[in-house]
């Protein structure tokens, strides 16, 4: 085994002794000196995950979060040095991690937090001018297509994921009530904003993002017959979710 393989293997496994061949200045085994590296790795990655998922941390509590993060990073260490997006596997991990399996809403709240991070770092895009949409003859509206901004993320949760997130992130937010929630994450400026969409809104906006004209998006899977189009368009426009319309002709 190479020195690096031995050195790396023990970093993420507290049960393993420090590797051979490492010494203090007097030639004694390195002991605690090796643990400095072990501690740096585990603490820095745990801290990074906590900064990335502050509401998950608040929901499970600091001590539980550190245990959870330790288990997560053993199986899902960062694949590359861009820690800004590391943690995309956390929602799936939370679905199976035994200690939080009774908290069924955690994975979707984690998906929302990850969506906010992705939105924050997404490419910039020119603002959409809604005047063009207003000038469109009503009969042409169903044929209109939209370019959805790179910073848009959509979530359809059977839990009140947004209400739970707000309750833990925003002082004074109301206590969540049990309900499914569709959520739009978008970035009108530099700060991502999460907005509630009407039921079916994530499916509708997802169809638009896939290039479907508005009329076809209304018929997409998951969009109900009584879909509240006005509420959906209001949220999408206020959130700066579009960059430009396609040619509706």
């Amino acid at each position: 085994m190479s020195f690096e393989t031995a050195f790396a293997a023990a970093l993420l496994d507290p049960e393993r002794p420090a590797p051979e061949g490492l010494f203090d200045p007097e030639g004694r085994p390195a002991g605690k000196r090796y643990d400095v590296y072990r501690n740096n790795v585990v603490v820095s990655l745990t801290d990074a995950l906590g900064v990335a998922f502050p509401v998950i941390r608040a929901l499970v509590g600091e001590a539980n979060f550190r245990v959870l993060a330790r288990a997560f990073l053993a199986g899902h260490p960062p694949r590359d040095p861009r820690l800004m997006l590391w943690g995309d596997a956390l929602p799936g991990f939370l679905e199976t991690y035994p200690r939080v399996r009774t908290l069924g809403y955690l994975p979707d709240v984690a998906r929302l937090e990850q969506a906010m991070r992705e939105s924050y770092h997404a490419a910039d895009a020119p603002a959409f001018d809604p005047a063009g949409l207003a000038a469109l003859p009503p009969e042409k509206l169903t044929e209109a297509t939209f370019a959805v901004a790179p910073s848009v993320r959509l979530l359809s949760s059977r839990w009140p994921a947004l209400s739970i997130w707000r309750y833990n992130a925003e002082p004074g937010a109301p206590k969540p009530q049990m309900a499914a929630e569709d959520v739009l994450v978008s970035r009108p400026g530099f700060d991502p904003v999460a907005r509630l969409l009407p039921t079916g809104g994530a499916a509708f906006a997802g169809a638009l993002a896939g290039g479907a004209p508005l009329g076809a998006a209304l018929g997409a899977d998951g969009v109900p017959a009584d879909f509240d189009l006005d509420a959906a368009l209001t949220a999408l426009l206020q959130g700066g979710a579009f960059t430009q319309t396609g040619d509706p002709s």
């Binding site: 790396a8 970093l11 960062p78 590359d80 040095p81 820690l83």
Partner: peptide
Amino acid sequence: HETGFLNDLL
């Protein structure tokens, strides 16, 4: 290392 990015200067 093969295990991934360890976020420390080793």
